[in-house]
Every structure is written in structure tokens, then in C-alpha cells.
């Protein structure tokens, strides 16, 4: 029975990683850059929701929607101010800028909200669901995380395969020049991807803090790095890859904690990444793309 309960916690943690990883992978797909500030957008989302709920006593749903709006605005602003001027710059310059934005967000949060941890309330309540005659208990946050992940996956798949904007996004990911020649505004499309990724980051931040209630200005960095790992694991640039990578990573982490060592669980996660990349350098669902000259 403990195996089943670990599996469920793994899938639920993995669902949160998957939602974050989507942001990394979609941005990479279209802008060919690693947005290392993405993890900190999660933290801003969690703080926004926390303050709206605790200070203004707004209902959960309002807090979540408002946090999504804050993060969308933040994501689009970051792209516009920090990354857009570097569209033609070498990849290394963009990478360093992204790390800079990450530190900026962490320190701005430190200034605004201090380093005192905030205790985040569970947005899904605390009544566990008991199954199999009380032997298996599932937290409502875990269920909510898994459900959110499924809904987001279905919605994104529909968006990219059936809408005009979603197809334009795929076209831009493949060939920006050709997309422009079709009349697609590449800048608007990139902004839209940042908007979607950041709104998802808000959801992930709230779910994460609901499950692990300590909120500090660095809350987003470790899950951010793990979700990035998940995106690479699944094949960066691939939406289903981010999903599979995230969930597998969550399961590996929880099983590592439960059966091997709590202290080593993070090391195990990254060890698995190294092994996967040695065997399949493009990730589980990644395609080996030849660099065009």
C-alpha cells in the first residue's frame, strides 16, 4: 500500500514539474532560449496569490486568476525588456541575461516580502480522501495537481493543433523567417508563448506551495531547475515530452526519497538525467535536429 501512495505523491509532484516544464519547453521551442527566470516567476505567482488571499481575504479562485494575470504580465514584460533586444545576440548572452533576470526577481522579492518564510494555506483544503478502507489516503492538493496537469495538457494540445494562433506558434518554432513570409507577426507570437508559460507558472507556484507550504523568495529556484531537467529529460521543445519528463521526474524523486535516501533524492534525480542524456541525448521524445548552416 505504501508503494501506491508513494506513486500517487510522485505523480502529483511530477504534475507540478510538468506544468513548469511546459513553460521552459514552449519558450525554448519558439525563442530557442533557456529562460532561467521561469522558476522565479513561479515564486512571484505564489506570493501574489498568498497576499491576495491572506491580506484581502479574496476567495481562492480569485487569488489564482489574479496570480495568473500578474505572472502573464511579468512574463511578457521580461521578454519585452530583457530578451527581445537580444533576438539576434549569441545564445550565451541571452543565457546570462536570463540568469540575471532570475537573480533580479529573487532579490526584488527579498526586498518586497523579506526573507521570512510565509506559511502558504492549502488551496484545496486539508481533508484527505481515504480509499481502500482507509489504507490509502490521498491529499486533495495531490488530486488537484494531477487534475490541473491533465486539463492543461488537453487544452494545450487542442490549442497547438486546432487554433490559428497555436498553428502559427508551431510555424514560428520551426522557421521564423518562413513564418514571417506567411504574414505571421513573430514578435506577437513569442510574447504569447511567454504569456502562456508564465500563466502556467503561476498555477504551478500555487500548487507547489499548497503541497509544500513554506514560501520564500528562493522557493522557485529548485523546482525551476528540476522542471528544466524534466523538460530536457522529455526532449526540450516537445510539449508531450515536458509532460512525460515532469511526471517521471516526480516519481523518481519520491521513490528515491522513500526507498533510497531522503538526503540523496535530488542527487538521484540528476543522476537519472545524466544517464538518460548519455543514452538519448535529445531526451525521451526529442528529435535529433541537425543544425542548419
Amino acid at each position: 500500500m505504501s508503494f501506491l501512495s508513494h506513486l500517487i505523491s510522485g505523480i502529483s509532484l511530477g504534475s507540478i514539474y510538468a506544468i513548469i516544464a511546459l513553460g521552459y519547453t514552449m519558450v525554448y521551442g519558439i525563442a530557442k532560449m533557456l529562460n532561467f527566470a521561469h522558476g522565479d516567476v513561479i515564486m512571484v505567482g505564489a506570493y501574489s496569490c498568498f497576499f491576495l488571499m491572506s491580506r484581502f481575504h479574496l476567495p481562492v479562485i480569485v487569488g489564482v486568476v489574479a496570480a495568473m494575470l500578474v505572472c502573464t504580465l511579468l512574463g511578457v514584460t521580461i521578454e519585452r525588456l530583457a530578451y527581445k533586444p537580444l533576438r539576434a545576440a549569441p545564445a550565451l548572452a541571452v543565457l546570462i541575461t536570463a540568469i540575471g533576470v532570475s537573480y533580479f526577481l529573487q532579490n526584488a522579492a527579498l526586498l518586497l516580502w523579506t526573507s521570512n518564510p510565509k506559511v502558504f494555506p492549502s488551496i484545496a483544503g486539508n481533508t484527505s480522501i481515504k480509499l481502500l478502507g482507509g489504507q490509502l489516503s490521498i491529499s486533495p492538493t495531490a488530486l488537484l495537481s494531477i487534475a490541473s496537469c491533465i486539463v492543461i495538457m488537453v487544452a494545450l494540445t487542442w490549442f497547438t493543433s486546432s487554433t490559428r494562433m497555436g498553428k502559427a506558434m508551431r510555424a514560428c518554432s520551426e522557421d521564423k523567417g518562413a513564418a514571417q513570409l506567411m504574414g505571421i507577426n513573430v514578435n506577437v507570437t513569442i510574447s504569447m508563448v511567454f504569456a502562456i508559460g508564465s500563466a502556467l507558472a503561476a498555477i504551478a507556484g500555487i500548487l507547489l506551495c499548497s503541497a509544500y507550504p513554506t514560501l520564500t523568495p528562493t522557493t522557485g529556484s529548485m523546482p525551476g531547475i528540476k522542471a528544466f531537467t524534466a523538460a530536457v529529460f522529455g526532449g526540450i521543445g516537445s510539449i508531450p515530452g515536458a509532460m512525460i519528463g515532469g511526471i517521471l521526474l516526480g516519481i523518481i524523486e519520491i521513490f528515491g526519497k522513500a526507498y533510497i535516501s531522503t538526503q540523496l533524492s535530488d542527487a538521484i534525480v540528476f543522476l537519472v538525467l545524466i544517464i538518460v542524456l548519455l543514452v538519448r541525448p535529445a531526451g525521451i521524445l526529442g528529435k535529433t535536429v541537425q543544425e542548419k548552416v
Binding site: A171, E174, D175
Partner: peptide
């Protein structure tokens, strides 16, 4: 070089 969207 045509540059069609190969994955679509």
C-alpha cells in the same frame, strides 16, 4: 530551399 513547415 522552399522552407515549408516540415512537421506540419
Amino acid at each position: 530551399g522552399r522552407r515549408i513547415f516540415l512537421s506540419m
